[in-house]
Structure formats: C-alpha cells, structure tokens
Design a binder for these strands. Structure first.
Lengths: 251, 251
DNA sequence: CGTTAAATTGAAGATCGTCAACCAAGGTGG
DNA sequence: CCACCTTGGTTGACGATCTTCAATTTAACG
C-alpha cells in the first residue's frame, strides 16, 4: 500500500504555499519570513473531522500543509454540497481573518496537517507587508475564480463533463505543489464525496466514472486518478486552465 | 412607466459603497476621501454592452454606481452561465486589480453608471490605508460567500427554490443600498437571464415563476419583483442571510 | 402600427435521481 | 485465521425533474 507520491512539503510546512505564491510574483526574504513566523502551531487532524464549524467565532486562519480539505454546506433534508476542495499550500481559511465566522463547515477529507495562523499576525502582515498582503488577497481571488468555474460546471455541463472538469482542475492544482506523477495523482474521495462536489448523486457519479473509463479518458480506483487522455478529457470537459492564473502577474 | 424606486445614490457616486462598508465597520474621513479621489472618471454604459471582456488586460477596476451588472461565461455550444449578479455599490471588478485579466465577461444587464478606478490608485490605498484595504478585501470575500451559496443552490436545490433563493438574496442586497420598497424591487432581467443565473432554461424558469406566483410567494412582472410572503419564501428556499455578513465585524 | 424580443404553453424526450439489491474490500474480534 | 460487519462500490428498473422543440400570445418600441 505504499503511496508512490511523496508528501507535498520537504519538511518545510510553508513550501507549498511559497511555491504557489512565487508562481505568480516575486517574494522577498522578509515576506517569506513574515509568513513563516506567522504560524503559531501545527496540528494533525484525522480524516472526517471538521476543522471549522459554521458560526463558530474564529481567531486564527488555517494553512493546509498536507491532505485534502473541503468546504461544504448541509441542507435540512440531509443533502450536502461541497463548495470547494483545497490542496496543500492553500490558505484554507483566510476568509475567517476578515469574516470572523463562516457560514459553512470545513472538513478534512483525508488525514491532514494544518498550520494555525492567528488573526492578529495576519493583521500585522496586512499593515507591514502590503505587497505580501496583496498576494494573499490574490489567493482568495483565485479561489473565487475556481468557484465561478464550479458554478459554470454545475449549472451548465453534463454530468461526465462536470466530473472531468474537476479532475482536470485537480491535476493542475496538484501539479503545482508537486503531488502528481505524470497524469496520475492520489484522490482519496468516495464517490459520494465526488457527487457532493459536482451536484450529482453517488449512483450517477458511479455510472459516469464507468463511462469515462470505457471511453479511455480517466480511471479512478483505489483512491488514485489516472488520466489516460488528457487532451481529449480537457476537450470533453471544456477545461481551460486560464482561470487558475498560473503565470507571473504583469508588473 | 415611472420607476417608483429612486436611483441608489443621492448624487454621491460612492454613497452605496460607503453604506455597504459602514455596515461592516467604521470608516474614517481619510479613508472615505481616499476612496472618493480614487475615481478617475464616471461613465454611462447601455444595457447589453460588455464592461470587461475575458482576457483583455486591465488597468482599472469598476465600481458600480447604478444599474445591474453580471459576470458570465459562455460555453462553445452557446450556453451561458451567469456566475454573479452585482448591485449598486459593488466593486464589480476589484478582481482585476490583482488578476490583471479575467477569465469571464462582465456585462451590463441594465443601463449602467460605473466609476473607473485606476489600479495604481488601488495599489496606493493598499499601501497607505491597510484598514480600508482590508475592508475592500472583505468585500471580495463576501462575493465569494455569495458564490458558494450559488453553488449550493444550483447543485442541490430544486428549480423553484433556486429562483426563490436568488430573489431573497437580491431583496436583501438591494435593501442595503435603499433600492427596495417593502418587499418590492426592480429587477429588469429577462427570464433567460434568470435561467442563466440559476442553471435552468428559460422555459423552466417561466413555469417555476408561475408556480411561485400561484403559491402566493412572488410575482415577477414588468421588471418588478414583489415578494408576497417573504417568511414562507425564505423557508421554501432555505434562505438564511448569515452568508451576506450584514452585521458589524467583531473588533 | 408593424416589427421584434420576450413570455407562455404543450408535448415528447433525456438526463439524472430514487429505490433497492448485491458485491467487494478491509478491519475487527472471537 | 476466518466469520462477521461496515463502508463503499456496482448494477437494474423505474420515475421525476428538467430540457428540447415548436407554436402561439403578449409586450415593448420605434
């Protein structure tokens, strides 16, 4: 059962975050240091546990170091909708810094390592490091861009394309933090999780996954995703990575 | 054809923005002034025109003074998805400040008045007014929260509830900037627009609007929305305004 | 008043959901 | 070490919500 893909960080808890920030802009040592010292403590959380509960007052934000995390809402009739998936290096809960409480839950989909960053240290960053602050802000805007694509997907795409689009996106986002091997990556989600993320039922997800497999596009099995024909999958899903803003910002 | 609801601002182009910011936190005169002087020029745009086109390099952001604006994506087969609606006082395009280009279009749904704010002036605000900067950031986070509710709606709610939820939300957002009269407000959207916002077809929107009307919940006619039974509509749509963050932030 | 866009309605069909059963895997305890 | 149990995956039959197609009516507007 050895996972062929190593953990995101090489011991450095903010390695993934730095990689992501530096993809978009230069980052000085002072800024790197400000980030590094903003971490109060690091914790491990078991799969299935909630990191943040809706309504709960917040005093620190959460930086995801390892594992997968989801934001989700529950409806009264028991239905669940995952509104966003987070990969290592995501500042999962920067929202809390300004919103002070959330309207949704944040849960660990896998065993997870997270860093706790107190809000007052974030406030200091926003006062002393405007450039870094803008970069963190940028991160939340990219999250927002990802959410818009999810709206587009769920609102207008067929089931198979929705799933394909999500898998294409995760491939790219995991690639950035070195968590892929070719077109293969670990995605320990149940089909029910996938259904909650795509606005489908687990039964239909199952059927669509079989269709995607039969079409030679993707195989998802044992918590691993293998994309066999990325170009065709991207075409089927109308995936265009522009919305992930992976290039350096123009000055 | 006299519109019974007056324009959002009483001559002051940033009145709605200020109202929204002050709902969440105190705002000093220096900050108000920084905002006021950040405006380069004000323009009028006709309904149907695009304010921003995907991919186009951006050098200023857009503050919506009057009218309704939508963000939307088009798919190759001609389908459209509106990912967000903006009301007066919304900083529609603050994203562009950091992203430098967009992956979607921004269009005027009605005749619109917008203020152009050059990015370099926003940058100066982020350097000289960290508190104001955080408030502007907060605005984009609330946008994000609204988007998550849209994902929830489109992903998990029945058609009638989706429409109901959107109308409840617009009532509250327009209330904040004084654009409602009781439970009545102007919403000059076609049923096709509404369909594009809710991930439905115009035909089905039409049927659901009739159902909502027959149930005594809402009437939408001639560009005006009249909510007859807000409490019941909110129950049907499972609308809970928490996600709009309408109270003052804890200090 | 004519022209066009938007709203409305009906009928038929497709995608996706529901219900229900069965299978596979993996961990636990006897 | 294997029965047992739980969770997740798989499949089939049926049904519902929503879409598509198409025609008609109403409203908007120069």
């Amino acid at each position: 059962m050895s996972d062929p893909i190593p953990p995101a960080d090489g011991g450095d808890p903010i390695a993934s975050l730095l990689a992501k920030l530096r993809l978009r802009d230069e980052l000085g040592m002072a800024e790197e240091n400000a980030l590094r010292t903003s971490i109060e403590r690091i914790e491990t959380v078991a799969a299935g546990r909630n990191l943040v509960t809706a309504g709960q007052p917040l005093h620190h934000s959460i930086l995801l170091i390892d594992g997968l995390v989801s934001r989700f809402n529950d409806l009264k009739d028991g239905q669940r909708q995952i509104t966003e998936l987070h990969v290592p290096g995501d500042f999962v809960d920067l929202h809390g810094f300004l919103l002070k409480h959330l309207d949704h839950h944040i849960g660990a989909l896998t065993p997870v390592r997270v860093a706790y960053v107190p809000h007052d240290r974030l406030k200091r960053i926003s006062e002393e490091h405007p450039h870094l602050s803008r970069l963190l802000w940028l991160g939340t805007l990219i999250d927002s861009s990802i959410q818009r694509q999810r709206i587009l997907s769920i609102g207008r795409r067929m089931a198979a394309s929705r799933i394909g689009h999500l898998l294409c996106e995760l491939l790219v986002r995991l690639e950035v933090v070195g968590l892929t091997e070719g077109n293969r990556f670990a995605l320990p989600l149940t089909q029910t999780d996938l259904a909650d993320a795509t606005g489908l039922t687990s039964v239909h997800v199952n059927r669509m996954l079989r269709q995607l497999r039969d079409d030679g596009l993707v195989t998802m099995r044992g918590g691993m995703v293998q994309i066999h024909d990325l170009a065709r999958l991207e075409r089927v899903a109308e995936f265009d990575r522009t919305y992930l803003f992976l290039e350096k910002l123009p000055r």
